[in-house]
């Protein structure tokens, strides 16, 4: 489950594609306490996610701890066609990183 990304991307109308993605990540703010120990849970959150269409960066997401656990992202973009590659890669504040890619349906 760690470092998992779920991506759905499909052609909507004309040359526009719609993307929906969930990145599984705790997105800890560093402000919460562990209820059993009283210890502060260290901050652990994605800082940047990059979206690439056929290898070209089309959007960079700068995220902070205010983004919900297991970040959800949906957007649409143009200039797409069925079979195109869509890649999402992220890095977090601890230096962990992951990426995944899909073909546009």
């Amino acid at each position: 489950m760690a470092n998992e990304i779920k991506i759905r991307a499909w052609m909507a109308e004309g040359d526009k594609a719609t993307v929906k993605a969930i990145i599984f990540h705790p997105m800890e703010t560093g402000l919460r306490k562990d209820k059993s120990t009283g210890q502060i849970i260290p901050a652990h959150y994605i800082t940047e996610a990059k979206i690439e269409h056929n290898g070209k960066n089309i959007m960079t997401c700068l995220w902070g701890p205010g983004v919900s656990k297991n970040p959800f992202l949906s957007f649409s973009f143009k200039g797409a066609k069925s079979g195109d590659n869509l890649k999402i890669s992220w890095v977090d504040n601890k230096g962990d990183h992951s990426s995944d890619e899909v073909k546009l349906a």
């Binding site: 526009k16 089309i58 997401c61 700068l62 995220w63 205010g66 983004v67 992202l73 957007f75 649409s76």
Partner: peptide
């Protein structure tokens, strides 16, 4: 919020219509 900035998207001309995310 404790920190008002939640997220920022650097977009290119290819991004259209909308961006959806979930925040705290």
């Amino acid at each position: 919020n404790t920190a008002p900035l939640t997220m920022s998207y650097l977009v290119t001309a290819q991004i259209t219509d909308f961006i959806t995310s979930r925040i705290k």
